[in-house]
Design a protein around this nucleic acid. Structure first.
Length: 584
RNA sequence: GGCCCCGUAGCUCAACUGGAUAGAGCAUCAGCCUUCUAAGCUGACGGUUGCAGGUUCGAGUCCUGCCGGGGUCGCCA
């Protein structure tokens, strides 16, 4: 249960009654009313802006509405205090018993706590990674992979029906280049001295094993025929080898997709022609000549007639070409067909996670989706900014040519998948991210992964001690839920429960805003509340978790610990990070 | 030059999609280990949210124009 939604419905109900009773005018719009935790805890536990939002349309003073409303809210069983504050906020404080019950909710639900229904089963397609199948993944791809994966998870937890998808760009010129590069490695595998890799081909070592595999499978058959004859076959071999490589990298990162969509298959199936005639029928296709970009005219610019899509009718800056001068489709045309295909498969909410270098492409894709789905589907493109790799504060120099190129795999091998994933989510997607290979392995509070994991490990450390000192206390969540939770009365204890109770709301808002990083920040906050409580027990021995001679209180505190550990585990699960029970 | 993103404490970043006195960590300073992990905690110091207007009960958040940084810009994908 998201308790803020719960209280919102109570507030709205009260307002309806006030409206029926003539205390406020009828027919007011309640949609802008929010119920939130106040920023300052001294203002109470929950707060609503209802009076301020309604003041103007009701033609009343905010405080007057608030006074009436607060009288009703004050009567609610769980509310110990309701008062008007500031310009017309209503702040409510909830009883300790209420919070005890919320802890019981957590214990009953286990790691399913936070799972919601706000998504109402809406079908969402999250497309992420979609790295070209021409080589292993780099660190930037890794960020997109983690962001997309965590976003998909948080959407699932919020009740959306999610499909994780990878778009394989296997139709462009770059895969022909890949095929030629592989053919070279294949000749090499058969004993030929190929010398330097020519300019324009992929020089990477990762093609060597693929060349050997091809030589083993097919022998020398591709030496005797012309490129025209070998291109297609070797291309598919190369693509599938590169996809294996990428899938391996993704697996190491704990990322998997439900669907791999092939651009080539889509084109072969006529999807582009279909999308094109759809647009043509709507009068959105014409032949025209584009202006050169203002202020930066390419040297070789010459006007030429092109087949254009009227993207400007849907908010783009210029109309966009769909055909090259040789009559073949542009990448954009294929992409249009692909997005129409997603829509036809039943998705009305499309999310694409791209690298920041695709920023210039967003508007035309948005325009495309609007045109192709008649506005029935929405697309949200999350651009991931660069990852700056550092080693103890110094930038790691990377050059493909010098061979100092850092692959995603080498980073995962060095720091582990859990650390890599968590760090990738400690920034919002549109901010640049510093990834310090030394710092992320540090065991200190500078390091958010460690800080959160340590909280979880500490909790389990106490639980282990408890099972020795208090063998009679069952540590199962359902059992602990029956403890005398009203014995938890210290502000730090209640504060921890309150922080835990925010989790369903975080899930909902992170899903709605498409911002998985909020989960990482939440976990940091939660860990901080826990560490604070822990240390309070150092100064004040009566606040320790294990209380000799008071099994009832110990049971209640173990319940609190179990609950906090459960919420941390639930959050880490969304991020795809495994909680640890012991630090080494 | 057009478009997109960013600009918040000395540094790295939050701010619940428009809410109250803008919050954390690092750094600096002052405290806390005979104790379930001090791998942590408590406090102090630190702000004209790049600048100037506008919208409104209320703006870091929305709009306009500047300044600074990054990205991108017709048959590359």
């Amino acid at each position: 249960m998201n308790l803020f939604n719960y209280f919102r419905s109570i507030v709205v109900q009260s307002l309806k009654e006030m409206s029926e009773g003539g205390e406020i005018p009828p027919g007011l719009d309640f949609s802008k009313i929010t119920v939130e935790p106040p920023r300052d805890a001294s203002h109470g536990d929950i707060s609503t802006n209802a009076a301020m939002v309604l003041a103007k349309p009701a033609g009343m003073k905010p405080r007057d509405i608030a006074e009436i409303l607060v009288e009703r809210l004050d009567l609610l069983g769980d509310v110990t205090r309701a008062e008007v504050a500031g310009p017309g906020f209503i702040n409510m404080t909830l009883s300790d018993e209420f919070w005890g019950k919320r802890l019981a909710d957590v214990l009953e639900a286990g790691t399913a706590y936070g799972t919601g229904t706000a998504g109402e089963g809406v079908q969402v397609n999250v497309e992420y990674v979609s790295a070209n199948p021409t080589g292993p993944m780099h660190v930037g791809h890794g960020r997109g992979a983690v962001v997309g994966d965590a976003l998909a998870s948080v959407l699932e937890k919020a009740g959306y029906s999610v499909t994780r998808e990878y778009y394989i760009n296997d139709a462009g010129a770059q895969v022909d280049t890949l095929a030629r590069s592989l053919h070279l490695r294949y000749r090499e595998a058969l004993g030929e001295d190929i010398g330097e890799i020519p300019e324009g081909l992929y020089p990477g070592d990762y093609l060597v094993p693929a060349g050997q595999a091809l030589a083993e499978r097919d022998g020398d058959v591709w030496l005797k025929v012309s490129e025209e004859e070998w291109l297609s076959e070797i291309r598919s071999f190369a693509i599938s080898a590169m996809l294996d490589l990428i899938r391996d990298d993704l697996k190491a990162l704990g990322v998997c997709h439900d669907v791999f969509s092939s651009e080539r298959a889509l084109v072969d199936a006529g999807a582009v022609d279909e999308a094109f005639s759809y647009l043509q029928d709507k009068g959105l296709i014409y032949t025209g000549v584009l202006e050169p970009p203002k202020g930066k005219k390419p040297d070789d610019w010459e006007p030429r007639p092109q087949t254009l899509f009227r993207a400007t009718e849907f908010g783009d800056d210029v109309d966009r070409p769909l055909k090259k001068s040789d009559g073949t489709w542009t990448y954009f045309a294929n992409d249009m067909a692909y997005h129409r295909d997603k829509y036809r498969r039943g998705f009305t909410s499309l999310i694409n996670v791209w690298g920041a270098d695709h920023g210039g492409y967003v508007k035309r894709m948005e325009a495309g989706v609007k045109a192709l789905t008649d506005g029935a589907a929405t697309i949200d493109v999350k651009l991931c900014q660069m990852v700056n790799l550092l080693e103890a504060g110094e930038p790691v120099k990377m050059s493909k040519r010098a061979g100092t190129f850092i692959t995603l795999r080498s980073v995962i091998d060095k720091v582990g998948k859990d650390v890599a994933r968590f760090i990738m989510l400690t920034r919002k997607n549109d901010a640049q991210l510093d990834f310090d290979l030394a710092k992320v392995l540090e065991q200190s509070k500078d390091n958010p992964v460690f800080y959160v994991q340590y909280a979880h490990a500490r909790i389990h450390s106490v639980l282990r001690h408890a099972s020795e000192q208090f063998p009679g206390i069952g540590q199962d969540g359902h059992e602990l839920a029956k403890a005398r939770l009203d014995r938890l009365t210290d502000p730090a204890e209640l504060g921890l429960i309150k922080q835990m109770s925010v989790w369903p709301r975080i899930v909902e808002s992170a899903a709605e805003a498409h911002e998985p990083h909020r989960v990482a920040f939440f976990l940091n906050d939660l860990a901080s509340h826990f560490h604070a409580l822990w240390n309070k027990g150092k100064d004040d021995t009566s606040l320790r978790f294990l209380v000799e001679g008071d099994e009832e209180l110990t049971r209640a505190r173990l319940a609190l610990l179990r609950g906090a550990g459960t919420v941390i585990a639930s959050g880490l699960d969304v991020l795809g990070v495994k909680p640890v029970e012991e630090m080494r």
